[in-house]
Design a binder for these strands. Structure first.
Lengths: 201, 201
DNA sequence: CATCTAATTAGATAATCATTAAATTTATAA
DNA sequence: TTATAAATTTAATGATTATCTAATTAGATG
């Protein structure tokens, strides 16, 4: 499991001296003594931290005569950060039980709603992640009457209490097919709504 | 300095038990005992780690009867990961060549601030144009402590030095999602939090 | 060779931290 | 009220870790 790797990565960045080393290195390569001076620590301390950063593949080294120059390894920095996010956000290795997916789904849904809406029912902000965005959109749209036809103005007024930017919101509704528009008249798309739900697992 | 926050963030993720907690929470909200069982530790340990994760704004909590349910705050997770990357190596996100736009933006911002605030830092009047209004609001709100909870009274007192009509101002904060309110308690929107110190580097 | 310089290692100390058992708090239910 | 269930706090322990000083290694140069 790559858990250890993620932990190691974060551990490497969980120290102020090491972060400051990296910040300095972002400005170009430096040798040990220079780093020690700028950070007001002994060379021994730099060696210690350099070892940790090296283990996490966050820096590279180059030797010139008696001096060793350290430099950033941005490739790993970026890669590791993304890997960590993926690990957490998508779950580890799918060991989650499949027994009651329905229950799980509803819990997730409730969690998303609670998270993104204020107690007054106002949308805090639009989720970046598609899955969550769909949940949020679905939640809002579910307060519309199905089968009824709405003028654009009505839709705007309907959205406003949820979100300031009703134009974008309206576009999202159409784009994700929660509603369809015909001759400036908007209507809920009940069938699609249901289909969307199935896709959410 | 914002360094502490970066360190704190990474420290929070620098422990296998906490990472595994987050992975579990990515599958939906869970209460303390459930987490303790699945991770084979005592509830006390979960409490300990939950506190750390809470301090780093990585999780949310909800109480239902005697049970406290934890859930992931992945919006914040993602934001911090990206912000940390930018602190260390600029342009790590593949956003090369945006320096000019960034500079331009900052110039505009400074100009707006200079124009709408007195030398003493008081707001002359609320800009009519949305874009400028947002800059002004953002500027004021940036002086609030992130992560801290404010009573309505505190918010009013905070606004007064900037603007007389604190009620309107407060409403603007909420409306434009710089803050959110829950049970009469106000809190900075985390999104703004990292947007803020991202700008500081 | 002898010497100088940069870096590393070794050992020691103090601080931080993860974990647990036991006691306590908090909120519900009877 | 009393009983119960979940969570937190407290205090202790063992492990890890950041940092230093002093000694040592590795290369370079005279």
């Amino acid at each position: 499991m790559q858990l250890d790797k993620v932990v190691a990565y974060h551990k490497a960045l969980a120290d102020p001296t090491r972060i400051r080393m990296l910040i300095l290195l972002a400005g170009g390569e430096r040798n040990g003594q220079t780093l020690a001076e700028k950070l007001a620590v002994t060379p021994a301390t730099i060696t210690h931290h350099a070892a940790k950063l090296r283990e996490a593949s966050l820096i590279n080294e180059r030797r010139d005569k008696n001096t060793i120059y350290f430099s950033l390894n941005d490739y790993f920095l970026k890669g590791n950060a993304e890997a960590a996010l993926r690990l957490i956000c998508r779950g580890a290795d799918g060991t989650e039980g499949e027994e009651n997916m329905e229950e799980e789904l509803e819990r997730t849904r409730a969690s998303v709603i609670r998270h993104f809406f204020t107690k007054e029912g106002r949308l805090k902000h639009v989720p970046a992640q598609l899955k969550k965005k769909l949940i949020v959109l679905e939640h809002i749209v579910s307060h519309l009457e199905s089968g009824r036809k709405y003028a654009e103005k009505e839709i705007n007024e309907f959205i406003k209490p949820y979100h300031e930017d009703f134009a974008t919101m309206r576009r999202e509704f159409i784009m994700h097919q929660f509603m369809y528009r015909e001759d400036g008249v908007y209507e809920l798309n009940p069938r699609e709504m249901w289909a969307k739900w199935q896709r959410l697992s």
